[in-house]
Amino acid sequence: MPLGRLPAWLLLAPALLLLIGVFLVPIGWFLVASIMELGTPAEIWEEVDAVLFSGAVAGALINTNWIGLVVTLLVLVIGYPVSYALSRAKGVAFTLILLCIVLPYFTSTIVRTYAWMVLLGRNGLINQVLLGTGLISEPLNLLYNRTGVVIGMTYVLLPYMVLTLYAAMKAVDMRLLQAAEGMGATPLQVFLRVFAPLTLHGVIAGVLITFILAIGFFVTPALMGGPSDIMIAMLIEREVELTQNWPAAAIMTVVLLTVTLILYGLYSRFSGALEGGAKP
C-alpha cells in the first residue's frame, strides 16, 4: 500500500508514541510525583508560594526574560541581513553562508563555549588585540558577566532566526519588489513598504522561537555568565542536582513550561501563516 493512502494519524503514530513515551510521561511523572509528595493542597500551596515569591525565582525570572529579550533583539538585528543574503545567494555563496551558520552545530556546546573563553577572556585574543593596538588600557570584561552570556547565546541562537527568516524571505516573490521599484519606489521604500511587511510573519515566528529557546537556556549562562546571571533553568537544575528539592524544581518547571507553551501557541499561529503565505 502506498504511504499516501495511510491515514495521517497512523503516519504520525511512531513519532507520537516516542514523544509520549520518552517526554510527556517522564515529565508528567516528575511534575505530579514531586508536587504530590508535598501533601495536602494547603501544603502544596504553601510551597508554591514559598518558591514563586522567594526573591530568587522572581530575580531569575526577571533575568531570564531580560536576557531572552536582549538576545532575541540582537539575533534579529544580526540575522535579518544574513537571512536576506542567504535568500538571494546561489550556488557556492549559498553553501558557504549556510555552512558558516550551521557549522557551530557540529561541535558540542561545551567545546564551543570553551572556545569563547579563549577568545573573550581577560587575557583572551580579543583583549590582547585591543590592548596591543592601544585601543584600551585595561582588559575589557567580556566574560563572566551579562555581556558574555549575551554574546554566547546570540551566537548559539542565530541559526534558528536565520533559517526561520530565510524561509519567509525565500517565499517573497521577487517580482513584487521589482514591480514596486518600477512604480517609483526608492530602495528604502521597497524594503519598508513591501519586503518588510511581507516578511513580518517570519520575523514574529523567528522572534518567538528564539525567545522560547532563550528562556530555557542553561549551559551557556552557567559557563559564560557572572554570579548574578542566573536564569530560571539554572535554578531548576540547582534544585534537582544540588539540594534534591524536586518539588521546588517541579514548581519552577511548571512556570517555565507555561510561559513556553503560551509563546509556542503564538509561534504556531505565525508559522501557520508562514506556510499559508502572507496574510494581512
Binding site: D173, Q178, A179, A180, G182, G184, V194, P197, L198, G277
Partner: peptide, 15 residues
C-alpha cells in the same frame, strides 16, 4: 515615470 502592468499582475498581497 512609467506605468507598468506585469505578467503576473504583481498585486501586493499585504495591501
Amino acid at each position: 515615470g512609467l506605468g507598468m502592468v506585469f505578467q503576473n499582475y504583481a498585486i501586493f498581497p499585504h495591501l
